[in-house]
Each structure stands twice: as C-alpha cells, then as structure tokens.
Write a protein that binds this DNA or RNA. Sequence first.
DNA 1: GATCTAACTTTGGTCAGACCAAACTGTGCT
DNA 2: AGCACAGTTTGGTCTGACCAAAGTTAGATC
Lengths: 229, 229
Amino acid sequence: MRRASDDLVAEIEVRIASGQFENNKPLPAERDLMDMFGASRTVVREAISTLANRGLVETKPRFRPVVKKPDYGTVLTATSNIIEHLLSEPGGVTDLYRSREFIERSLARHAALHANKDDIADLKAALAANYEAIDDTPRFFQTDMEFHGILYKIVRNPIFPAIHEGYLSWLSPSWGKMKRAPDHNLINYHAHKKIYDAILERDPVQAENAMDEHLAVAWEVVKDTLENK
Amino acid sequence: MRRASDDLVAEIEVRIASGQFENNKPLPAERDLMDMFGASRTVVREAISTLANRGLVETKPRFRPVVKKPDYGTVLTATSNIIEHLLSEPGGVTDLYRSREFIERSLARHAALHANKDDIADLKAALAANYEAIDDTPRFFQTDMEFHGILYKIVRNPIFPAIHEGYLSWLSPSWGKMKRAPDHNLINYHAHKKIYDAILERDPVQAENAMDEHLAVAWEVVKDTLENK
DNA sequence: GATCTAACTTTGGTCAGACCAAACTGTGCT
DNA sequence: AGCACAGTTTGGTCTGACCAAAGTTAGATC
C-alpha cells in the first residue's frame, strides 16, 4: 500500500526538477497545495516534512518552505543527524577520522599528477597563510583546514568538497578538544610544506607518502585526545 | 522558534539510544505516545515521520514503526533519494564513478599492508569464483563485485562496506548497460589477479598501481557506454 | 484439545474544521 | 518617502471523526 503523501512528494519532486517550483523560491502555501493536488492539509504537511528531511526544501517555522535543488552538500545536511548518532558510539569518531586517510592519500597523489598553475598558486597561498598563523592557534586551525580543502577542490569533482565539509562539521568538535600549541602547529606546517613540495615537483609517490605521514602523526594526537577525554 | 514535534523527536531519540525503545521492536502506538508525552496526535505523527526520514524507525503503512538503531547502511537509505537526483544530472554518474578510484586505490594498498590470512583466503576464493564465471557474464558481474567488496571489508572500518553498498546500488544500473563479453571478463579477471598477487606479495605500490590500471581500463568502457547511451 | 472462523478491538492513514501567533500587506498618516 | 497600524495570510497545533487493514479474542467445528 502506498501513502497518499508519497504520491504528493513524488509530484512535488517532479515540479522541482522541472523548474516549475523554482530553486530558492518559496513553495506555494499549504492551502494552495491542497487545492492544487486535491489533498488534505494533513497529507500536504506530511509531504512537506518528508521533502524537508530529504533536503529538497528548507523549512523554517512560520515561513514558507524554500525549494533547494539538491547538491552533494544537501546529502550532508540530510545525514548529519544520523552521523552524529554514529559518532557518539564507541569508535565512531575513530572510524570517520581514519576514513579520511584513505581519501586524502589519493587526493595528494592526484594533485601531484594533475594540479594546474592556479591550483598550485592556491596551495602556495594557503601554505603561506598557514605559516603566518603558527602563533595563532585558532587561525592555524582554520588555515590548516583550508590547505586540505584545496586538495579536495583540485579533483574538480563536486563529491569531494562535500566530503571535506562533512569531515569539517563532524570532526572539528573533536579537533577542537585537541591540544594545539605553536610547536605542534609548526610540525603540521612542515608536513604541509612537504606535501606542497612533492606536488610542486610532480612526484605522486612522495605526495602520497608525505600525506600519509602527516595524517599518521596527527592521528596519534587525536587518539590521545579521544582516550583521555 | 521551535516546533513541538522537534522536542518529541529529541525525546524519542534519547529513548532509542538508551534502549528504552528497543532496537527492532515496534514503537508504542501513536495514541499511547500522545499520553506518554502529552502531545497531540498531529505532533506525534509529525515526529514519527521525521524519525522515519532520518532512518531511526522504519514505517510500513498500517504497521507500527519499528525502531532501527542507525548504522552506516542507514546513511545510504536516507540519502539514496537525493543521490538519485544527482545522478540524473549531467556528469552525475561520472563523478560518482571516478570517486571510487580514489578510494579503491587506497583500499588495495591497505590490503597489501594489513590483510591477514583469512582476508587473503577470502580474496583467493573470490578470485577463483571470478575465474569460474568468465563465461557467465551475469555471474561474472556478481563475483566481480564480491572481489572488490572484500577489499572494502579488509579495512575493518564499518564506513567502507557501506560505501561499497552505495556504489553497488547507485552505479550498477549503469554497469548493467555495459557490454560485457567473455573476452572482456577475461581482461577484468587478469586485472583482479594482478591486484591479488600484489597483495599476496605485500607490495603496496604494486597493489595501488594494479588497481589504478584496472579502474582506468574499466572507466573507458563505462565512459563509452554513457556517451553512446 | 487443537484448529479454523467470525466478531470485535486496535491502530495507522486521512479528512475537516478550528484557533493562535507570527509574518506579510496595504492603507493612510506624517 | 518613510512609518505606524490594522487586517489578512500562513504555518503550527489541536480536536474529533471515519475507514480499512491488522491484531485479538471467543466460539464453533472436528
């Protein structure tokens, strides 16, 4: 058996995909949707709730739902609730953190092979900002993330920046609890520099290894933080 | 402002996490939840709908919602709707397919470094099954997937099998349209064997490269299929 | 006593109508 | 043009009702 609201959800999805309900514009009022589809308000509201949970519309209490054409970022917001549950379980943060190593390794290699002039300029700038912030731990943290973010961007595949966003939003709470002193920042800066140099020299093997080492060292610090929490 | 149903969702989530609402058991009836939380049926139903969309309970029309403690598989089902939207956009399948290369590279390397006896036995068995199925394309397809699946398993991080499931469910529609003749299967089998041999010899570099090559060749076939569709 | 059936109860899905408070709109005043 | 205020619209919530399918119980049958 099928729920009436499922049909409505499907119909509204079509209208969003076709542009009849424009992106970033509000959906018609609930009472109008009732007339439009011949459904009761209950069904309409249930459908909107489903669409909101899928990330196709954004609801804010007392405002009309706003249409959001999905992108890979939408996937994140739709899953962040579940992920947070999973992270609270034992080993949750560890699993997520370690998954990053698998991706960023390949990212470093890809950058060494395919980064163009602009990419390398971006990396250079990020590295410089990173250096500048060694004595300013919060800013170092941010420039650290940005350096890594550029690697995610170089692939030119929209999936990867979204993954980076995910790691940021889910892991930074743990990172925030890490001890981060200037001497520690310096170590990370040098690791970044090593990665950058390898990319500059178009040495994929070296880039992979440098990233591996960087994340392994960082992992030790994170691990201590998690255990001593 | 906060919606009343949001509070209810939060309370039910707590009870699920604490085990008061047991996993795989039905939630109390809607009318009981009303009494339990002093909420109207509207609010209760809205909360259940939200929980269902988040994957914390599974609803089947006319049955009580069943509590499902989330795992990484839940993340998939919660996102599959959005992902399907994204895959229908130009380049969507390409982006997803290529993201796989980044992961499986590292997977092959990790297996070469860390696979234990059982893992290698599993790989060997999968490879043998793969060989047996060369003349039986549908079965070859399946054993192909299983061979890759073992690599996802070896990491012993629950995120990866879930990712594999995702690739399977989202990409196999495209793979199904690929031409797959026995001679083509043979090429893939040899690629698998090369990966297996590298893992057996604990040669991470060779494992990475073999996987890279394998996926690059396969990608050409997929690309043709997508373009000539 | 075990088994199948029919009547009864429970429960999820849907609908209609109502009220509230916040958001929006338009009017007229300054 | 800018602003204040009244009236309207709209999302959030509640009540109460009905239906059909699922679950349960009591009773008939062998």
